[in-house]
């Protein structure tokens, strides 16, 4: 099999990208877990792909968010997603090739029933809301609950992302952020505010998602291996 082209330079991660706000982060450490670093150095990482699903109300900008990151484009015209869109994004984390499968689900009500099909086995769930629309934040909790029905809460990373930061009035933004952070703390999600139009924080956010899912993947693989070894020792 011929090898793939090298990973794009801006997808190479050597240092752990930082959280958006200390108040609502998956963790606040400033570098990768030691065991993860060691495993990467020795090329002993297992699976190198993570499934990420993106959910949220209709027209909050899920597809725009992904397009800004994956294709560095922004389309002002709205086109509803049918069912689910799919993007594969390649990274290199600590020298290890790593892929994110991004499943961009439709926000429309009539597709809500099929969403669960797509949720299964996700390592990260990104709940998106519109920073200029209160209702979409209210619904974020519901989206999350739906998504969690088919997943193990202990093994899924959660992200709450406010979009259209450029459209939000400063006063409104402050208030929305406060509520969003409160919700994030409650559901143990990491909070981010971004703008797909200007591109603000979009790349930082996805690099953070890639890094944290990578870290979690490596740790759970190691744990599985260790427990298998422990079992083997016991059975010997």
């Amino acid at each position: 099999m011929s090898s793939l082209p090298p990973v794009k330079e801006d997808r190479i991660i050597c240092e752990l990208p930082l959280y958006f706000t200390r108040d609502a982060a998956v963790h606040t450490k400033d570098s990768f877990n030691v065991t993860v670093r060691e495993a990467s150095q020795e090329q002993k990482t297992g699976s190198n792909v993570a499934k990420v699903i993106v959910v949220g109300d209709v027209a909050v900008g899920k597809t725009c968010l992904i397009n800004r990151f994956c294709k560095d484009t922004f389309d002002r015209t709205y086109k509803a997603t049918i069912g689910v869109d799919f993007e594969m994004e390649r990274f290199e984390v600590l020298g290890v090739p790593f892929n994110l499968q991004l499943w961009d689900t439709a926000g429309q009500e009539r597709f809500r029933c099929i969403a669960s099909t797509y949720y299964r086995g996700a390592q990260a769930i990104i709940v998106v809301f519109d920073l200029s629309n209160y209702g979409s934040l209210d619904n974020a909790r519901e989206w999350l609950e739906d998504a969690m029905k088919d997943n193990d809460p202990s093994s899924v990373l959660l992200f709450l992302v406010g979009t259209k930061k450029d459209l939000s009035h400063p006063d409104q933004l402050a208030q929305m952020e406060q509520e969003a952070i409160r919700l994030s703390e409650e559901i143990r999600a990491e909070y981010w505010a971004v703008s797909a139009l200007s591109g603000e924080s979009v790349r930082d956010f996805f690099l953070r998602v890639a890094s944290l899912t990578f870290e979690a993947n490596v740790l759970s693989d190691l744990e599985r291996n260790n427990s298998r070894q422990a079992r083997d020792i016991i059975s010997k």
């Binding site: 499934k51 049918i82 069912g83 689910v84 799919f86 597709f111 099929i114 099909t117 299964r120 086995g121």
Partner: peptide, 28 residues
Amino acid sequence: PCLEAACNDIDRWPTPSPGKILSLPIMG
């Protein structure tokens, strides 16, 4: 809606070229 989504998934697939490894996302 499930059929609609499935058809939409399939409409994103690479074309069926012999000899290539094709990754075909469908239903998650």
